[in-house]
Design a protein around this nucleic acid. Structure first.
Length: 524
DNA sequence: CGCCTTTGACCTGCGC
DNA sequence: GCGCAGGTCAAAGGCG
């Protein structure tokens, strides 16, 4: 099946998304590995309740997966597998002083070897279905508790894809199909088969409104090394998922989003995208253009890769004004690089010449390649550091016409950020991604790690980001991240991030053709 | 032969 | 308690 998909994708059309996966490392597993062996199930479930969330990407080392992995080199992953990779994402939300023990936890990102051990000695963090079924009926079943149900985090990807499923780099076995209410398209249920004990499942369903949109929802934590191709976007979704793991981020001064992972280098071919990973540069999240949303019953982050492009130019013109109401605030992360996620677009989302950072209506221009960290504590976030810097706002030598600052917009957006903890974490994730993209597509990311501290202290840490031109062209021009505000439903503690500048497939096609020109213009 | 998909039945949670 | 909907199981069959 995967092979079929890969062929189809590779030869023809579709997005070839060698995708992500999330490894949400269980806090208690890490704390007490021995315990995890014995009571892994409980630990797994406890993870859902833990406020301290440690998200870690899988690693791709020597193939530790079952034999089939060795037999079948599906989707050409074998090449990548040979290389080996340590990808780690460590997002920790240290919510309160009560989480003292959290401080003793090893960081997945910094404990690669530990993770390898763990993987080599697989601890069943999810019981086999039969066991699970038994547990469900048990009195002590933690999973059955409403609380756990409530906290089961999912990451959903919306992407235009004309194949049955997106090729996310993992191997899946379909175990069920249902017609969901309100959607004529059946929902398919898949289980990760890379490891027999892997608890990760995904649901695939076409969007009722737009059949070309494939909605893939991931749930669970891989307990095995991921193929390189599967780790490409893991950090992105991990970061996104992390937002849902902490009920109140900002009240906790110690939130640290720490990027220690290798970068993901994207490569493109004529008709498909191929996100592959390469090693050893510190970096992390991919948040191409995504919308993130959560729901109450099943906290779900949706990375919306389908949004149409704005009517305005990707470069410097932003038409949407942030909208605020007493009950909602909105933040949009967008990047000019997103077109790559659309099918048939010969441009990598990670290799665009420039990223954009738009906060509110401001196009900020990080003129000195210094992307500092995000502090969403008491200080207005980008205000002092980016937006108000004349350099950033001025028309650049690339011919970008930047709009004038709009104080109200900034103030409103700042207020939105400082008000909503999840908002802050979303920003952290987005920035992490942004920096990641820069490092991935670019030549250099000078900082071994991007640390984003959301809290009270304003300790900025420098992270230098270089943009990359198309296909290996290295640019040292600043990347610009586009962050615009629109609306977030803060009432229910939900965070919604709407993409604002995602090119439609058609637009992307044309845009992709001219993008490099524009890019060159930008960077000349 | 092994792995996969299909598909009806079953289980579980939730709202009324 | 009942019904509905989502999710899962597992037997059957297909495919390479």
């Amino acid at each position: 099946m995967e092979t079929k998909e890969a062929e189809e994708i590779g030869h023809n059309k579709s997005v070839q998304m060698h995708f992500f996966d999330i490894l949400q490392q269980d806090q208690k597993q890490e704390e007490a590995p021995s315990k995890a062996k014995g009571t892994a199930t409980d630990d797994e479930e406890n993870t859902e309740e833990s406020e301290l969330v440690s998200l870690s990407l899988g690693l791709t080392s020597n193939d530790l997966s079952p034999s089939k992995e060795g037999k079948k080199n599906r989707n050409g992953e074998g090449k990548n597998l040979d290389e080996g990779l340590a990808l780690g994402l460590d997002i920790r939300f240290k919510p309160s002083s009560a989480e003292v023990e959290a401080a003793n936890m090893p960081s997945p990102a910094s404990s690669f070897e530990e993770e390898v051990k763990e993987l080599q000695e697989p601890t069943e963090i999810w019981p086999p279905s039969k066991v699970l079924q038994t547990l469900r009926t048990g009195d002590n079943n933690i999973e059955a508790s409403p609380q756990n149900q409530l906290k089961k985090t999912r990451v959903s990807i919306r992407a235009r894809c004309d194949t049955q499923t997106m090729n996310d780099g993992c191997h899946w076995r379909k175990y069920g199909q249902k017609i969901a209410k309100g959607n004529p398209c059946p929902r398919a249920y898949y289980r990760c088969t890379v490891s027999p004990t892997c608890p990760v499942r995904k649901q695939v369903q076409r969007c009722a409104e737009d059949m070309s949109i494939l909605i893939t929802t991931y749930e669970g934590t891989h307990n095995h090394p991921l193929p390189l191709s599967a780790t490409a976007m893991a950090s992105t979704t991990s970061a996104a998922a992390s937002m849902l793991q902490s009920p109140s981020l900002t009240s906790q001064p110690g939130l640290i989003v720490n990027s220690m992972a290798a970068p993901i280098i994207s490569s493109t071919t004529a008709n498909n995208l191929n996100f592959t990973s390469q090693i050893s540069r510190p970096q992390q999240c991919h948040f191409p253009n995504s919308s993130i949303s959560t729901s109450n019953s099943h906290p779900t982050i949706t990375l919306d890769l389908t949004a149409p492009p704005p009517t305005s130019s990707r470069f410097g013109r932003f038409t949407s004004m942030p909208r605020y109401s007493s009950s909602s605030t909105s933040l949009s992360f967008s990047s000019s690089s997103f077109s790559g996620l659309q099918p048939n677009i010969p441009q990598s989302p990670w290799s665009t010449p420039a990223g954009y950072f738009n906060y509110g209506n401001q196009l900020t221009h990080n003129g000195n390649q210094s992307l500092s960290l995000l502090n969403t504590g008491k200080q207005p976030l980008f205000q002092s550091h980016y937006i108000h810097q004349p350099n950033y706002m001025s028309t650049t030598s690339h011919g970008i016409s930047h709009q004038q600052p709009l104080p109200e917009t900034i103030a409103a957006a700042t207020n939105a950020i400082t008000r909503d903890p999840k908002f802050q974490s979303a920003l952290a994730a987005a920035l992490t991604t942004y920096v990641s993209n820069g490092a991935a597509g670019g030549r250099v990311s000078e900082t071994p790690a991007l640390n984003m501290k959301l809290g009270d202290d304003m300790s900025y840490r420098k992270s230098t980001v270089y943009a990359s031109g198309p296909k290996g062209t290295n640019f040292e021009s600043p990347r610009q991240l586009n962050l615009s505000s629109s609306s977030v439903n803060a009432q229910q503690g939900n965070l919604v991030l709407f993409p604002t500048s995602l090119p439609s497939p058609q637009a992307s096609k044309s845009a992709s053709g001219s993008s490099s020109n524009r890019s060159n213009q930008l960077l000349q």
